[in-house]
């Protein structure tokens, strides 16, 4: 039960072909600059697990249950995420009672089951939305300038730093943006909007020199 072949946006898992929403776009255009020369490097991170988690942030049982099931502390500070290097699990704050757990593809069933079991009789919920999203990393020295062309959120180094995330508009679609380092950022976007957003990113990054990894 392991992956057999994998390109960035098309892969076969257990004899079933998976295609990301950017399968055509990523193949069609690799940018106008080499990776070294590019001001912006775009890369799709397809096929992750996305579990939407709902619960009461004031209830320690809920917080403990999530921590136990996925190994990451639930961020209760708005607009932040917690990341666990060992498992690769990320939990982002979405609202006072809503979080997004991002994890490797393989772990979806295990995580969903562990969360449900952990919640027991609590009023909490987990919803698998893994196929409803994709993620795009936006790296390079002009990454923040690129985001600033589309989002009203202040994404300057001073105001959007490692560990920060924000739901907002990027161009004309809703996204969850995150900051990893000064020059490494990313967005989670709904599947049906992904191609639109990708085209917008490519268009808006052309003067920086854009490279698709």
């Amino acid at each position: 039960m392991s992956s057999q072949t994998q390109t960035n946006s098309k892969a076969v898992f257990d004899d079933v072909t998976w295609e990301s929403p950017l399968v055509e776009a990523v193949a069609a255009y690799q940018g106008n600059a080499t990776e070294e020369a590019a001001g912006v490097i775009l890369q799709e991170l397809p096929f992750s697990t996305y579990l939407n988690i709902r619960g009461d942030a004031e209830d320690s049982k809920f917080l403990t249950a999530v921590k136990k099931a996925c190994g990451v502390e639930v961020p209760t500070k708005p607009n932040t995420y917690n990341y666990d290097e060992k498992t690769g699990h990320v939990i982002s704050w979405l609202s006072p009672d809503e979080w997004l757990l991002i994890a490797p593809r393989e772990s979806v069933a295990k995580l969903e089951a562990a969360l449900r079991k952990g919640f027991g009789g609590l009023h909490a919920a987990v919803t698998d939305n893994s196929h409803g999203y994709t993620a795009i990393t936006i790296n390079g020295k002009n990454a923040r300038e690129l985001l600033a062309k589309g989002t009203p959120v202040d994404v300057s180094v001073e105001h959007f730093t490692t560990g920060d995330c924000a739901q907002s508009l990027l161009a004309k679609t809703n996204v969850l943006m995150w900051a990893e380092t000064d020059s490494q950022l990313g967005v989670v976007v709904r599947r049906s909007f992904a191609d639109y957003l990708w085209q917008w990113l490519i268009h808006s990054a052309q003067d920086f020199g854009v490279h698709v990894r």
């Binding site: 708005p78 607009n79 006072p96 009203p152 907002s168």
Partner: peptide
């Protein structure tokens, strides 16, 4: 009240 100061276009 939850996310802080944001632009009207988000609301």
């Amino acid at each position: 009240p939850w996310c802080g100061l944001r632009d009207e276009s988000e609301f």
